[in-house]
Design a protein around this nucleic acid. Structure first.
Lengths: 239, 239
DNA sequence: CGGGTTTTTGAATTTTATCAATGGCTGTGG
DNA sequence: CCACAGCCATTGATAAAATTCAAAAACCCG
C-alpha cells in the first residue's frame, strides 16, 4: 500500500553532487533530500507513536519516508483538530523556531528521516536556492491550510467529505498513482478530527456518497471514485 | 475606486543604507522596509476596494500602512471565507508564485506600500537574512492559520467570538496599545465570514459576552474587555 | 431630520452532535 | 476450524447548536 521508500546511497557531505535536489515549480514545491547528510538519521514509529509533542524543542525537520503522520492541536477539554496529514515525501517542520506548537502522531507504521535544524540552517546559507525552496514549500502549505479554512468555515459536512476525498485523489495524481483509487490509512475518527465533524457524521456522509453512486467502498480503507465530476462539483459547492 | 498611487521618491537601489531592517524574533517576525527602494510605491484604497482578485498575476508584495485588508476565498455560490485580516505593518504576499489564489479587499480606507516581487527576489539573494525573515514571517502566518483551523473546526460560536476578540487584544499588546480596548474596523458580516458563522450568530454571541459582563460595547466598533481571564478561558475551551 | 444600512432580537427550521445499539471484521485461543 | 473478544464503522432516535427568515431597533451620513 505504501510505496517502498528505499534509502538513496550518496556521496559524502560535499555540495553539489545532486545530494540536495529541489523542485521549486511553485505549485507543488518539494524538497528531495538524498538522505546523504552525515547528520541525517532514520527512525520508525508504530501506530499512535508520537514524532513530537507540543512544547518539545524543535531539533529536527522530518521527512516522511513511509506511512502517514497527523499533526494536530488540542483544546483543554480534549477536543482535537488535525491540522494536516503528511504522506511519504512530505516534510514537517519549517515552523516558528523554538518549541513545537502542535503534536505529531503516526497514524500507521511510519518511517521517518530526521534532519537537524542546524543542518537546515547551514543549507540555507550554503546551498543556492535551498532557502527559496523552503519558502515555496511553506507557501504551498499555507495555501493548502487556507483551503482547509474555507472547508471548515463554509462547507457542509457532505462537501467537507467530498473535498477530503478529492484532496487525496489530487495527491495521487501528483504522485502518478491512480486518481480514482484512494487508500485511507487513517480511521474515521481521524478524518472527523481533520474535518471538524464527528465520527458519525463522517460515516453518514460517506454512506450518502456511496448511495448516490459517487464513490464505492472496496473496503473500509479503500475507496473508488465512480463519479469524479460530481465529486468535484460537491467539493466546489457548485450544486 | 482605486485612487492615487503616487510613487515614493527615493535614493537609488543601493544596498545597506538602513533601507531594510528586519526583526526576526520568530514569534512575531516582521519586515520593516524603510520605504526606500526606487521601485516601491504607495497607493490608497477606499472601503471595499480590491488590492487584488483571484487569478490576478502576482506582481507585488504589499505592506499595510494604514487601515485593514481582508484576504478571502469564495465558493461558486458566493459563500465566503475570510482567511485573515491584515493590519498596519503586516505584509501580504509571499505566496505560491504565479497568480493570486484569493481576493484581497480593503475593509476601510486603507493605505498600502507595494514592493515588486522582482525586488523581493533580488533582496533574497542580496541581503543577508532577508530570506530568513521571510521564512519566519510565513511560518508565523502558517501557525496563526492553524490556530484558526482549530477555531473553525472545533470551537463553539461563543468560543470563536471570544478567540477572535482575544486575537485583536494580543495584537494590541504586541503593538503597545491598550489590550483591553479593541477597535473593530470590520463589519459583523466580515467577522462572520472570518469565523465561519452568520451575522446573526456573531451578534447574538457578542450580546452574550456583553450580558455576562466579559466585554462592554462602547460603540458598535469599540469593545472594552472587562474580564480578560474569563475571555481567555472561553477562548481556550476551559469553561 | 431622514433614508439607507447595519445590528439586534425573535421564531421556526435545518444541520450536526450526542446517546444508544447493532453490525462487521480481525485476530486469538480453545 | 470455530467461537469469541475487541475494536471500528454504521445506523437510528433524540437533543443541541446554528442557520434562516422576519421584523424591529440602532446607527451613520448627508
Amino acid at each position: 500500500m505504501l510505496s517502498n521508500a528505499r534509502s538513496v546511497q550518496e556521496d559524502e557531505f560535499g555540495h553539489n553532487g545532486g545530494m540536495c535536489d529541489w523542485l521549486g515549480d511553485g505549485r507543488s514545491a518539494r524538497i528531495k533530500m538524498g538522505g546523504s547528510f552525515t547528520t541525517t538519521s532514520e527512525r520508525s514509529l508504530e501506530t499512535h507513536g508520537h514524532l513530537f509533542m507540543i512544547g518539545d524543542t524543535q531539533t529536527h525537520m522530518y521527512q516522511i519516508l513511509e506511512g502517514v503522520v497527523g499533526v494536530y492541536k488540542m483544546l483543554a477539554d480534549g477536543r482535537r483538530q488535525i491540522v494536516n496529514f503528511y504522506y511519504p515525501g512530505d516534510i514537517i517542520g519549517w515552523a516558528v523556531p523554538g518549541a513545537w506548537t502542535q503534536h505529531a502522531e503516526a497514524l500507521c507504521k511510519t518511517r521517518i528521516r530526521s534532519i537537524p535544524t542546524s543542518t537546515v540552517d547551514t543549507l540555507i546559507t550554503t546551498e543556492r536556492g535551498f532557502g527559496k525552496a523552503l519558502l515555496s514549500m511553506l507557501a504551498t502549505e499555507l495555501e493548502e491550510t487556507r483551503d482547509q479554512l474555507l472547508s471548515l468555515g463554509r462547507k457542509s459536512a457532505l462537501e467537507k467529505v467530498a473535498t477530503f476525498l478529492l484532496r487525496i485523489s489530487r495527491r495521487n495524481q501528483r504522485e502518478d498513482n491512480d486518481e480514482g483509487l484512494l487508500h485511507l490509512p487513517m480511521k474515521r475518527a481521524e478524518i472527523a478530527d481533520y474535518l471538524g465533524l464527528t465520527i458519525e457524521t463522517v460515516s453518514r456522509n460517506i454512506t450518502i456518497l456511496k448511495k448516490t453512486g459517487i464513490i464505492h467502498l472496496e473496503s473500509n480503507t479503500v475507496v473508488r471514485i465512480t463519479d469524479m465530476s460530481q465529486l468535484e462539483d460537491l467539493a466546489d459547492g457548485d450544486n
